[in-house]
């Protein structure tokens, strides 16, 4: 069977689902963050395949911007995690229940 847009979109969907499963299932902040990266990458794959199969380069420019924003987001997020760890000595979401009634 000829590989087309549907195949790439299926891979992108499944990768997004894996990332979401990681966010729901894991309790370590760093692993949750990595799963978020996985979801972001899945969106990138979908955009690149749309760009390829619709003969339009704008999608790839968008992916370029997403990668830049993701790099900035990772640096700020990891700094937040380190600051949190310094205060609480834990990177585990179950230990962060200050807002619980």
């Amino acid at each position: 069977m000829h590989v087309g847009l549907e195949h790439y979109l299926t891979v992108s969907f499944l990768l997004f689902a894996l990332g979401m499963l990681g966010v729901i299932m894991r309790r370590n902040l760093l692993v949750i963050y990595m799963s978020l990266e996985l979801m972001l990458n899945a969106a990138n794959l979908a955009l690149v395949s749309f760009s390829r199969f619709n003969d339009n380069l704008n999608g790839q420019v968008l992916v370029f911007f997403i990668i830049t924003v993701a790099a900035a987001e990772v640096s700020v997020g990891l700094a937040l995690i380190v600051a949190l760890y310094r205060r609480r000595q834990s990177a585990h979401v179950e230990d962060l229940t200050t807002m619980k009634l």
Partner: peptide, 18 residues
């Protein structure tokens, strides 16, 4: 996969940045 989609620049950026 990006290379297969002929997005050569993004494939390189993906490896370098990510």
């Amino acid at each position: 996969l990006f290379v297969l989609l002929h997005a050569f620049f993004l494939a390189a950026v993906q490896i370098i940045v990510y």
